[in-house]
């Protein structure tokens, strides 16, 4: 039976096969991928970029106005606040996630007991949605019932800790929640990297009498460069998208003090009926990702080809 089929195939192969139909099933199976890649990832992105140069308002129209939308965007205070917030949130969360993630991973890697229990506790926030995260921290940071009132209850009457109600520090209130949610994930990535370090390195360092902390800083961290780069890319691509957390925790308030670019885009597109602004703002978000991504792609893939 099997032989007959193979023979049947080989007689078919005598005819010059139509190239398009070779390996047809695999091509059919890849149709969703091809459609997604071409129509959604390329098509929709190009569509948005093109329309960011038009004066679309309620409906997308191809009335080109050059860079007007971008000029207006960079003249809007709300956008500037969003960018500033994203920069503060981004830099702090990048540094803190890397430091906390690496420190926790290093602690867990010291061959301790109950490693699984600790890891389970440190990682569970990552399973929760940003909405849940935001709402819990909104409650904990509530000045009338949360941390502030508890500390005041201990007798420190003038203690003030109300980040969600103070426009100057509201972004740090969001940062606390963001770090709580995401640092466990970075820890897991780092732990996987630490487990990949050869045991011999540790032995050699111990023989040479190098203190543990020095081994980490001067030997292990430089060896883990690729892991750090991966973590960096993961954190930054998450930062640009930050949206739900702000919506749940503060809805952008007080006032516009905790607005972020993703929220600006959503509000302009679906609430303010100012599509052109939404398109211009989202194109700026794309641009920032591209600026971060290109050096990474160059390091990762450009280096591989040479080596």
């Amino acid at each position: 039976m099997a032989i007959a089929e193979i023979q049947g195939q080989s007689t078919e192969d005598v005819r010059p096969p139509v190239r398009l139909f070779r390996n047809l099933n695999a091509k059919i199976a890849s149709i969703p991928m091809i459609m997604t890649a071409v129509f959604v990832f390329i098509g929709c992105t190009v569509w948005t970029i093109v329309h960011s140069f038009t004066k679309s308002r309620l409906l997308p129209k191809l009335d080109f106005v050059g860079l007007d939308q971008y000029e207006r965007l960079w003249g809007t205070r709300r956008w500037l606040v969003s960018i500033e917030n994203l920069a503060i949130y981004g830099i702090c969360s990048l540094v803190l996630s890397l430091v906390i993630g690496f420190t926790l991973a290093a602690l867990l890697d010291r061959k301790i007991r109950f490693e699984n229990t600790f890891r389970t506790i440190l990682l569970y926030p990552f399973a929760l949605s940003f909405i849940v995260t935001g709402l819990v921290w909104q409650w904990i940071l509530n000045p009338d019932f949360g941390i502030q009132s508890v500390v005041r209850g201990w007798g420190w009457e003038s203690f003030t800790f109300d980040p969600l109600y103070n426009p100057d520090i509201v972004i740090f209130g969001i940062l606390i929640a963001g770090i709580w949610q995401g640092s466990g994930f970075i820890m897991v990535v780092m732990l996987a990297g630490l487990r990949g370090i050869d045991e011999e390195i540790w032995k050699a360092a111990r023989v040479d009498g190098i203190p543990t902390w020095k081994t980490y800083i001067f030997v292990v961290i430089p060896m883990m460069r690729p892991v750090f780069v991966t973590a960096l890319v993961l954190i930054t691509s998450g930062i640009v998208k930050v949206y739900d957390l702000v919506v749940a925790q503060t809805s952008g308030g007080p006032g516009i003090a905790s607005e972020v670019p993703a929220k600006y885009v959503y509000d302009k597109m679906f609430q303010a009926q100012n599509l052109g602004q939404g398109f211009a703002a989202s194109t700026m978000m794309l641009l920032s990702v591209v600026i971060i991504l290109i050096p990474w792609a160059y390091l990762e893939f450009g280096g591989k080809k040479r080596g």
Partner: peptide, 13 residues
């Protein structure tokens, strides 16, 4: 690469 594009760029189309 598409996985890195912010969703905001694609949601309206």
């Amino acid at each position: 690469l598409g996985a890195f594009i912010p969703y905001q760029v694609m949601i309206y189309p």
